[in-house]
């Protein structure tokens, strides 16, 4: 399987442990990543707030790059997935398409609309398949209670994101179970992490992040796992603020999706960049016996 690799900005900067883990997992399951140094930022939702058509055009350019190479896109960030998928949809509006095409044509770019945007989560669960993954597990996660935290833009609007349900997904929990973890169900798993307003009103963002973390903890989670590096920032790097907001310690390690997959498939913590997290993951690693 060959896919255009769209890591997104954070995975190349403060979240580069996500990139490390992604590459390791893709090697392990046979996904060939084709890299394009031409990919730009997806706009992260903020560009969409400032100028919708510009946002679509920037992402149409990204999609056109993959289209030219005859590849679909692999994303590793819920937000990037949302923005790129949104661009595909908005281009069905003739008025938007006309303006976007008008901006791209002088650059010799024409996007035909055919590129599929696939998050690693769906590639693993729907294309690689849970049976294949289960067979590759070398270090079963020993029933570790893990709460999935999806990230809004992966799920909604559900009609545009091609999700059967924007409020009751189960793909991530199915994956966790296949890796030997115990998926923890809690309301916050499909809610917001607060990241979009981290800069607007941090105390509210922290209250929101704190709510989700506390919810997971109260339902028995020992760790969370997320397919979005922006959620990761909010829940991991800013967990200290969330603790203040909820008035109690949380100490909940946050895994990037491919880190947890990698662990189960036999990667070492170093190979997965786990030391880079702000909330230490070691206590949870201790709960998973070593590789078979």
């Amino acid at each position: 399987m060959k896919l255009a690799y769209y890591p997104g900005c954070v995975a190349q900067e403060s979240g580069r442990e996500l990139d490390l883990a992604t590459r390791w997992v893709c090697r392990a399951v046979g996904i060939e990543l084709v890299e394009f140094p031409t990919f730009s930022c997806c706009g992260s939702g903020f560009l969409d707030e400032a100028n919708e058509v510009l946002n679509v055009a920037i992402n149409a350019r990204n999609l056109a790059i993959a289209e030219k190479a005859g590849l679909d896109l692999l994303t590793i960030c819920s937000t990037c997935t949302g923005m790129l998928t949104l661009a595909n949809h908005r281009l069905h509006d003739p008025a938007v398409k006309a303006r976007v095409d008008g901006a791209l044509r002088p650059l010799g770019i024409a996007y035909g609309g055919g590129v599929k945007v696939k998050h690693l989560l769906s590639v693993l669960t729907e294309e690689i398949g849970l049976d294949t993954l289960r067979a590759k597990v070398k270090r079963p996660l020993a029933g570790l209670p893990v709460g999935a935290f999806y990230g809004c833009h992966l799920l909604r609007p559900s009609d545009e994101m091609g999700q059967a349900s924007g409020e009751e997904p189960h793909a991530f929990e199915d994956l966790l179970a296949a890796l030997g973890a115990t998926p923890v169900m809690y309301r916050g798993r499909v809610m917001c992490c607060g990241f979009p307003i981290q800069f607007v009103k941090p105390e509210t963002a922290s209250r929101i992040a704190g709510r989700q973390l506390l919810d997971a903890k109260e339902h028995g989670a020992h760790a969370l796992a997320t397919p979005c590096p922006l959620c990761h920032i909010s829940l991991d790097a800013y967990q200290n603020h969330a603790e203040k907001a909820v008035g109690q310690p949380l100490q909940l390690p946050i895994f990037h999706l491919p880190q947890l997959v990698g662990l189960a498939l036999g990667a070492t913590p170093e190979e997965l960049g786990l030391a880079r997290h702000l909330v230490p993951v070691d206590p949870v690693l201790a709960e998973i016996p070593g590789p078979r």
């Binding site: 809004c152 909604r156 307003i197």
Partner: peptide
Amino acid sequence: LWLCLRCHLCTE
């Protein structure tokens, strides 16, 4: 206005 999280739970 800017407290909206654009999480789309309302649209859902």
